[in-house]
Design a protein around this nucleic acid. Structure first.
Lengths: 212, 212
DNA sequence: TCATATATGGAACAATCGGTACATATATGA
DNA sequence: TCATATATGTACCGATTGTTCCATATATGA
């Protein structure tokens, strides 16, 4: 059953897509209402506020849309049907490819979407910080799972793996924006993962790998 | 010989220090002239513009001041009197400690000082991007030097080391701001450096280390 | 003493910020 | 047909943005 009232004359989903591109490349605060209305097809302020409520509310919707689409490169991290190492590798490689793709702004919206904020917009910063915290927890859980399953030894070198992966992941935003190529990030990830292998238990031996 | 004219009534150096703290924590665009004048002791617009010229000119001065002080944690990277591995280790550890110190805003001004910008302030972004490019070149030069001196083997795993260290370094800004502790970053660096050691040539053998 | 040079306080600038008011247009459901 | 509900266009809101103007204050050098 269709809704009553005059129908909207612009495509709300496409508008959110366009707003995402703006917020993604410029960040929350520098993106003005004028730019937003313009990228939605020069809609009026009345149309904007009727549809989205406020700039902040739109941003929150954009973040949700991002997490449901581009942000899904992080999905393997929480997929317990994957082997922990595989989950981490897929996450890092997927994120590297996504962040350096040319079809959209470089880097990660969750990392850079509100990195410059005046005090009054701290809630917006907190929204993204909370998501990053989820990522950190994801890496930690993955490593913990690998230790529990006997894939990783329980040693100091293993404990730092989550911080290494998280820091590298977040650093890719800066690199991708600065023009570092996808292949370079991929190669770096390959090398990074040898740190995992160095703490891995070789099946059967219960010890660390010999050729390393 | 002292300058002619009425003397300035506020301390210009302290003002730049205070402005640096503001730009560091909020970034270039969200920091307003009102905040800047306020942190300098409620000076008048006339005093501000007479002393600094413009907001952008002040920011450029602030960046220079930052590079000359806190930014000096990067100095070892260009110090050819240090062994390459030592130079990189000192750089990473120094930056980790600086970025997570409580006495000033967390993270790195060069990474986060203008990460959210409207198109009109692209020159400001470019200023910082240029400095980050210098850092990348520094890591590359360090690794190149180590290969030339025979400290590192010349292999694919060695080639990616600069990207790994640079990405990690830049990622620390996000981590420090999110409250990751200095000790965690330090431990991660210790582990990261084993990637160097894995590509290192053991003195006398000309091959890679045995215990690894 | 007086010209010159610089700094200051205060008022004001046009432009933009995010957001609102209100009358009008266009749909559905009764 | 008419009440209800939603969207739109236009005008406008006060606040803030970075910046400029100008008269005045205070120093140095001649």
């Amino acid at each position: 059953m269709a809704r009553t009232g005059r129908p909207r004359e612009f495509d709300r989903d496409r508008a959110i897509d366009a707003a995402m591109a703006l917020f993604w490349s410029q960040g929350y605060e520098p993106t003005s209402l004028t730019q937003l209305k313009s990228c939605m097809g020069n809609i009026s302020p009345a149309s904007f506020y009727a549809a989205f409520g406020s700039k902040e509310a739109l941003f929150r919707e954009v973040v949700q849309h991002y997490l449901a689409t581009y942000g899904q490169v992080m999905a393997p991290l929480g997929d317990e049907s994957l082997a922990p190492r595989d989950a981490i590798e897929r996450t890092l490689r997927g994120s590297a490819a996504m962040q350096s793709a040319r079809a959209h702004p470089c880097g990660c919206l969750i990392v850079a979407g509100a990195s410059n904020c005046s005090p009054e917009n701290e809630p917006v910063q907190a929204l993204l910080a909370k998501e990053r915290q989820r990522t950190r927890a994801g890496f930690r859980a993955c490593v913990k799972r690998a230790i529990a399953s006997g894939e990783l030894r329980d040693c100091p070198a293993t404990e730092v793996l989550p911080d290494i992966f998280t820091t590298f992941l977040h650093g890719m935003t800066c690199e991708a924006r600065d023009g570092v190529r996808s292949e370079n990030l991929e190669a770096a990830i390959t090398s990074l993962l040898t740190l995992w292998d160095a703490s891995a238990v070789v099946p059967g031996t219960g010890k660390h790998p010999k050729n390393f």
